[in-house]
Amino acid sequence: MSEHHPIEDELTAYIDGELSELDLQRVKAAIAADPKLAALEALLRSTITAVEALPSPQPSQALRRAVLNGLDAPASFRERLQQWFRPSRLMPAVGLAAVAALVAVIAQQGRQAGPLHEAEEEQLYVAQNLDVLEDLELAGLESAEDLEVIAQLDSLEATP
């Protein structure tokens, strides 16, 4: 079995142009010095080029109709349940308490350490903009309670 060269793990990022200048030069030098590494780089590069040129399916007209016609349709039971368990509905009190606690902690630290550090200011900003939590919910990052409900959705849906 051939020995694993530590630079091998950098080759795909090298081909994708995702390395820093320093790492780029390091990988280039390693490839120039090692024919096996150069062969692997060439193989990865040719495969990536071919894969990226593969054609993909075109969406059907039926999809457009289904989506645009579905805009006014009521959400499914599952979606309605998820809406109900949104953090903004379920935990307003928890949210307010968290803000109050955060402000208190930061104010206390401010008294002890003088001007707020940048990270703390950032935390305050987050506290003032708790509605971004809804983005997290939209992206599927639910609260612990939500996760439990979602885990039980199948059985809830099956219940008449």
Binding site: Q83, D131, V132, D135, L138
Partner: peptide, 8 residues
């Protein structure tokens, strides 16, 4: 679409 109001 249904979550657009919460988009930031």
């Amino acid at each position: 679409y249904r979550s657009a109001k919460s988009y930031r």
